Computed example of a mutant assay.
Amino acid sequence: MLYANADPFLLHEPGGHLDVRVARYNALDNRRVRVEGSRWVPGPCTVKLEGARAAGYQTTILAVLRDPHHGAHARAWVARLTACLRVSIKRRMGLSPDAYGLEVRLIGVDTALGAPENRAGAPGEVGVLGIVTASSQPQASEIGKLINPFVLHCARTDDEELPTFAFPCSPATTGRDAPYEFALNHVMRPVLVITLAPLIARLLRIR
């Protein structure tokens, strides 16, 4: 009910929908759950449509922060890094922020959840994963090359000396090609159904 479904209580499928608004979930043990009270509601004949589309083209870059000062202030560093990158990409490539995607995730800090992460800690090192999404692979790769020196040497403030971080591999950037995302998940009632077999048979007889 939670997977790829807009409503966690109503699941629309061909021929009706599953209603679990009054369902009861009881744990029988550590591996089994008994579900009672679900109701199948018959409906008109429908078809399920699902689809995916390319969500641009991506290049990633990976660096590692081992400096305790920058590791302790990693999120503030990312905010400054991102602001500097936006300005540089606009100046050197003429791209506004809405023409590409730029995301920086901190491995060991907030990789899974990003901004909503509420756990705090002091890891010995922090991985910096930059994800660039653009309209073409060459453009994504070019942005990756442009941000390379910033990820390696960006200081947290103007008053600090330029640091040097680590690239765990060379080249630091990797082209990922096109990632895909769900673009269609819909139950549709057919309006017109055309059977092609009789039409093809008739055309063959004519020839």
Rank of each mutant, 00 (worst) to 15 (best):
E125Y: 01
T82Y: 09
P8A: 04
L85T: 02
R207I: 09
A52M: 13
R39H: 09
Q137E: 02
V64M: 08
V64D: 02
K48P: 02
E36N: 09
R24H: 07
I107N: 12
R176M: 12
E117K: 04
R75A: 13
F165A: 02
A183I: 02
K90P: 07
V132H: 01
E50P: 08
G94L: 03
G16L: 05
G43V: 07
V41R: 13
R24F: 01
S135E: 07
Y100K: 01
L162Y: 00
Y100C: 00
L129P: 08
A83N: 01
W77M: 04
F167T: 07
N148M: 13
V41P: 13
K145F: 03
R53D: 11
P68V: 04
L49E: 12
G114K: 04
I61E: 13
L152C: 01
A23C: 06
D177C: 04
P123L: 06
A27R: 11
D7F: 07
D29Q: 11
R119P: 02
D177M: 05
R105V: 08
M93D: 02
F150D: 02
R31Q: 13
A63W: 02
L199C: 13
D19Y: 10
A99P: 01
Q137V: 00
R24L: 04
S88A: 14
R92I: 11
R205I: 05
G51W: 11
V64A: 03
C169I: 15
P168H: 12
G56A: 03
E117S: 07
R86Y: 15
P44F: 12
L146F: 05
L95I: 01
L192H: 13
R189A: 14
D67R: 03
R202V: 02
I147P: 04
